[in-house]
Structures are given as C-alpha cells and as structure tokens.
C-alpha cells in the first residue's frame, strides 16, 4: 500500500510542477528586457539582435517556446544559460550543494534549539522560562533574517573582526573545517526557523498534555521524564515535523537574501542574478528545482509521519 501512496503522490506532483513552469514561463515571457540585447551589448545593431533572437528561439510564439521547454525538461535537458552558454545542469551542480548545506545546517540548528526550548516552555507554562522563551521566539520570528545577517556581520566581522564577512562555497571534505565561513549565514537562516519550531513544539506539547492518555499516565504514577519523552513528545512532534519540512523547503529558496548578504555563491543568488539578467533557462530551472525539492521534502515528511505515528501507518496498510 505504501508504495502505491508514494506513487500517487509522485504523480500528483506532475501537474503542480507543470503549473510552476507555466507561471514562471509566462512571467518571464511578459518581462521587459531582451536576453539577446543583454548578450550583444548596447551597441548591437537591430538586425544582429533579431538574428540572435531567432537563433535563441525567442521569436517563436509563446506556445511553441513553452512546448520546446517542456519537451527539453522531459529529456532532462534544461537548456543553456543565456549569459554563460553553459548547460543549466552544470551550473546548478556547482551551487546546489552550497545552498543544501546551508539549509540543512540551519534546520539541524533550529531543531536542536527549537525542540528543547519548546518542551521546557510547555512543561513550565507561565513560568519565567516560558515567558522568556516565548518572547525570544516571537522576537526571532519577527526579525527579518536579512537584517539579522547584517547585524551579525556588524558585530562579528566589523566590530569584533573575528569572523570573515564573505566568501564561501561548499567543497567536498571542507564542510566542517571552514566552519567560520558558514557559521554566521547558518545562524542567520536558522534563527527564525528555530523560533518557528520552538513555537510549534510549545503549542503542540500544550495540546498533547491535555489529552486523557497523559492524565492516565500520570495517574498510574509514570515518571515525568517518561511522560514527557515517551507519551507526550512522540505525539507532539508530528506537527513539528511538518513545520520543519516546510522550513527546509522554504529555506532553500529563502536563502536568497542571506546568500546576497554574505556573498555566497548559492542557488538563491544565482536565481536573483538570472532574474535581473532575464536569463530565462536559469530562472525556469531553479524554479523547477526548488518546487521539486519542496514537493519531495513534503512527501518525505508525510512518509516520516508513518514512522512516528502508528495511527497514520495503519491507514496505509
């Protein structure tokens, strides 16, 4: 049954991804600016521009261009970047690991901070610890992460001068040795995610500890430790998993601002430059990649549910 469920979900992704491409394609189609002129420069003659446009296939009707792109995607050909003329696939392979690393680290950080704080906050509701954690949680949800990044840079790179302000790309084997390069971006992205996860853990725990089975556990004299970690947390973590999955997908795309601030050569910054340059294949490719990753992560979260929650597991038997 489970593989049937997964297969159905994978098939359901197709129209969504098609929709994403259609929306992005239409937006790019109506965008002002001409990629051919960008490549040839301001002095290019109109004839040369028209000729290059024809070569790039930009003179064809909308539906032909769209069909051509979809046909390419089906054969895993995402086209070449208008700017560098390199295949999109090669370009993204340089940058995706960086962003993946950043988002992954941020999610790990946010789970490590958010879940314990959320548990403490819920268990000691209305205590000073709860008030403090709730306040901090709300504060970090509210601080725009690009501003947080700038403030961290001001403190650690400008005033204290202990950490470098820019330049980092993930290399195999150097993920941990050059931590001083990625620690600030990770905190920048992870802080708001940690706050969101903390808030979610807290409200979810509060919901769970009101259930009858918790009262039963307490009435039969179960130790508080076991009640918190075995009876409550397991049930409370289900919505937290969803949020963490959503956050991971969100961070992949949302890293755009952080990558800009820290001058990190990742997917977000790549996308940003591509949009400004009207580099359609890159914009389309990144949009598709992010939507795909987002959908896959959501699917994985749903599958993970089954491992955490036997009630859901039994539905798919």
């Amino acid at each position: 049954m489970v593989h049937k469920f997964i297969l159905r979900r994978l098939l359901m992704m197709i129209p969504v991804l098609l929709g994403v491409v259609l929306v992005t394609f239409t937006l790019l189609y109506i965008s002002p600016g001409c990629p051919a002129r960008n490549r040839l420069g301001e002095q290019a003659t109109p004839e040369a521009i028209i000729q290059l446009r024809a070569e790039m296939g930009l003179e064809d009707p909308f539906i032909v261009q769209f069909g051509r792109y979809i046909a390419g995607v089906v054969t895993l050909d995402f086209g070449n970047s208008f700017r560098t003329d390199q295949p999109f696939f090669d370009e993204i392979l340089i940058r995706f690991p960086t962003t993946l690393h950043l988002a992954g680290m941020a999610v790990v950080l946010s789970l490590l901070i958010g879940i314990p704080l959320g548990i403490i906050s819920a268990m000691k509701q209305y205590s000073w610890a709860d008030a403090g954690a709730t306040f901090l949680g709300l504060l970090f949800v509210s601080i725009p992460n690009f501003w947080l990044g700038m403030i961290l840079l001001l403190i650690f790179a400008v005033e204290l001068g202990v950490l470098p302000s820019l330049g980092w790309s993930a290399g195999v084997g150097t993920e941990f040795s050059n931590w001083h390069h990625w620690i600030l971006p990770t905190i920048t992205i992870g802080a708001s995610a940690a706050a969101i996860i903390m808030r979610m853990t807290r409200s979810s725990m509060l919901e769970v500890v009101r259930q009858d089975y918790i009262r039963t556990a307490r009435a039969k004299g179960q130790t508080p430790f076991k009640i918190i970690f075995k009876h409550s947390l397991k049930n409370a973590l289900i919505p937290v998993t969803t949020v963490a999955g959503l956050q991971f997908g969100f961070l992949l795309g949302g890293a755009i601002l952080t990558e800009t601030i820290f001058s990190i050569n990742g997917v977000g910054r790549f996308m940003m430059q591509a949009i400004l340059n009207r580099d359609s294949p890159v914009v389309l490719g990144v949009a598709l990649l992010l939507a795909f990753t987002f959908s896959i992560v959501n699917l994985l979260v749903d599958i993970l549910y089954a491992f955490i929650d036997p009630r859901i597991r039994s539905q798919y038997r």
Partner: peptide, 11 residues
C-alpha cells in the same frame, strides 16, 4: 510550491 520570496521577485 514556489518559495514566496522567489515568486515575489519573479513577479
């Protein structure tokens, strides 16, 4: 399915 900020930038 599209990250909010990227959708906003593209629009």
């Amino acid at each position: 399915a599209m990250p909010t900020i990227l959708l906003a930038i593209t629009i």
